[in-house]
């Protein structure tokens, strides 16, 4: 790829790498900061579930650009880490919220609307009502 050897490409890549590094680190830091100063668990959950994923994703992008800069190769493995984080972050956030509801953690006083109580089946026991897509569940003993 001849166009990659131009001098301005290096400058642009360098600037982009530096920008993504700083942006990612800043977002990571802010979300961790939120985890310290927010008032109840449900609020604290928002930082790690979203901002940390984006922050680390940006740092991974910066790393990819950096290796394009010094080696002229794309390391797609880093893309895999980003995708993995993007897929798993909402799942662990959902489970953690469920745990918090199960343990009846108090929510902040300014919260409008109360969480509904968790029932046996939400925790993972067999549901009493059959699942609409599972016709066999009604015959189960």
């Amino acid at each position: 790829m001849a166009w990659l050897d131009k001098a301005w490409v290096d400058t642009v890549l360098e600037a982009l790498t530096a920008f993504f590094l700083i942006a990612g680190a800043l977002i990571t830091f802010i979300s961790s900061f939120g985890m310290v100063h927010l008032r109840d668990f449900y609020l604290r959950m928002h930082g790690p579930a979203k901002a940390t994923t984006l922050g680390v994703g940006l740092i991974l992008v910066a790393c990819m650009l950096y290796f394009v800069l010094i080696e002229r190769t794309f390391h797609i493995q880093l893309l895999l880490v980003t995708i993995f984080l993007l897929i798993t972050a909402p799942i662990s956030a959902h489970l953690l919220a469920k745990v918090a509801l199960h343990q009846k953690l108090p929510s902040d006083t300014s919260t409008t609307g109360a969480p509904s109580e968790l029932r046996e089946e939400d925790v993972g026991q067999e549901p009493d009502t059959p699942h609409p897509e599972d016709p066999g569940s009604s015959q189960r003993p």
Binding site: S31, S32, M35, F41, R44, M45, G47, P48, T52, T53, V56, L85, A89, S92, L96, V99, A100, Q103, L105
Partner: peptide, 14 residues
């Protein structure tokens, strides 16, 4: 609370 500690650990991993 316990979930707080779990989420702290999870964020530390990331």
């Amino acid at each position: 609370s316990l979930p707080d500690r779990i989420i702290a650990l999870d964020t530390m991993y990331v």
